[in-house]
Design a binder for these strands. Sequence first.
DNA 1: CCATAGACGGCAATCGGTTGCAGTCAATAG
DNA 2: CTATTGACTGCAACCGATTGCCGTCTATGG
Lengths: 326, 326
Amino acid sequence: MAVTIRDVAKAAGVHVSTVSRTFSSPHLVNSATRERVLAAAQRLDYRPNRAASALTTGRTHNLGLIVADIANPFFPPLIKAAQAYAREREYHVFVADTDEDPQAEEELIQTLAKQVDGVVLVAPRLSNLAIERLGMDLPFVVVNRRVKGLSAVLMDIGHGTSEAVEHLAGLGHRRIVLVPGPRASWSSEQMGRAAATAAERLGVDLVVTGPNAPTEQGGVAAAAEVLDSGATAAIAYNDLVAIGVIEGLDDRGVDVPGQVSVVGVDDTVTGRLNRPKLTTIAMPTPAAGRTAVDLLLQAVAGGRTAAQATLETSLTVRDSTGPAPG
Amino acid sequence: MAVTIRDVAKAAGVHVSTVSRTFSSPHLVNSATRERVLAAAQRLDYRPNRAASALTTGRTHNLGLIVADIANPFFPPLIKAAQAYAREREYHVFVADTDEDPQAEEELIQTLAKQVDGVVLVAPRLSNLAIERLGMDLPFVVVNRRVKGLSAVLMDIGHGTSEAVEHLAGLGHRRIVLVPGPRASWSSEQMGRAAATAAERLGVDLVVTGPNAPTEQGGVAAAAEVLDSGATAAIAYNDLVAIGVIEGLDDRGVDVPGQVSVVGVDDTVTGRLNRPKLTTIAMPTPAAGRTAVDLLLQAVAGGRTAAQATLETSLTVRDSTGPAPG
DNA sequence: CCATAGACGGCAATCGGTTGCAGTCAATAG
DNA sequence: CTATTGACTGCAACCGATTGCCGTCTATGG
């Protein structure tokens, strides 16, 4: 039914192995022969059967991309970029979603393992130990996490956080409250550290609340704490939390940015379109997606090199921050 | 290296064909034998190689899901649901993104064709003819489009649109402006028709502007036309456009919903978190994703049955609509 | 003019499962 | 007691592409 390598071989008057070589190692076949084969392939609209080649070579030309929640606005730009970049390199991407469940994550990896050449894990929920173990069988790249022996892409929230603190201090804020995410989050930690350093350097007070759910509700709930802290500016774990905080403050009749300034993290569409437009620490998610695929393909092709890439973040100032009141 | 069917056969003391049958047609093997095989498989942590089975059966157990733009907030919930539903049925999903380019779409389908059992096309940009042609080789399901001979999932925007018009008329608006999307959009057409019918029935004026880009910018640009129309309420092509319209009106000092009411379409997070919270026609995107996969698997398993599923939309009232001024 | 290296391309085994066919064995009918 | 049937299970030929090995042919050096 479908056109196979044999049909092409017959049409070009050569052996199947020659056809195979024309595609996988062209330098091994005489250019005249090659032309003939390519012409026949073209004419018959031949397309190699990847399953067959996967069987012999062990390379599927597929990658897995595992995220916590596709619908969380943080992920789509990363998925989009990773997928486009992979496609340019003749790889297809399975996208899967764990619904934030570590066990689902592990099962997913297991079933995916045989069908992909490698997997990108974005902000995995699994324990390091589990990931290391899985990493022995299959190349992995982790994003926003550090796991011994695996390549990693880290979005360094530290720099952006410092910028945010400087920005707020520059606007006259003397007391800033940090509204972190879930307790175990790597980026929450990074933010805390960077904010503390910057605050000390600039002589402003830093208060930390939380932990909070990384959602709008989490932000709404945190609004009370923000007010109690006596701070005039808040840096939230991500844009959703920031929006929640703004909403919670609004419910209490507190104006943003008039009375309290709020900074988000991620630079999602949602934040960009929010009103007031969110000042936010932009995460280079498309670059992270591309870099992750890049490192993964290196690991697939090359050897056990565990490379690290650190991507910078920076502050994007919009309308949710303003001069300190008074 | 990896555990194969032969290892399991050896461990269980049976022939490979028996192992194969224990998995693919259990009823053909004696239950005692089956137990033994399963135990051995379990012990060795055997996982079938899908590439191998794809080679003989022609079934890859993979599906393709093609959307215009992963980062457009309309798609992620659909992708998420489709993927989860497919996984329950032991299918994996390749997600790919055409960047709104019909040619990329066609190429993508071509390269994907050999590696999937079927493809879901969401709001394809290709011509019907091209899709029909491709559909001869591979099962397809189209979402929000009708193509002869193919299964389709339609989100009937008509009902939601009528509700929106009724809602606005009930609030005293006598003149409503429709802010449609791109000229060729199927749903724009549906909306136009439904809005006209409802408006006539209720005796309110309906003005149509556009066409507009389906983005925030498109909405901002359309704000002037909205004002010129003299309408006190607008129904936009989607949430992004609605947000743009609100922003454009705000720039001109027009209050929403005080002076003009605005209704969006899609019910995206972005709209939900907008301020004012968007009144919107909710699209059942997760259900559409599931239904599409469902119909696709039917087409894959069964025959050439072209089923149609129509999903209803309905109005979700929030804060961007209010009583007509005056 | 002959030996030899190098370039090319054919041969066939192989990857891991699947499946039509046939053989074995015990139970049942006659 | 024998023929027949049905339930299992083994055998081996595939699926489509890859690749190590080897033979052939030509060009080149001595």
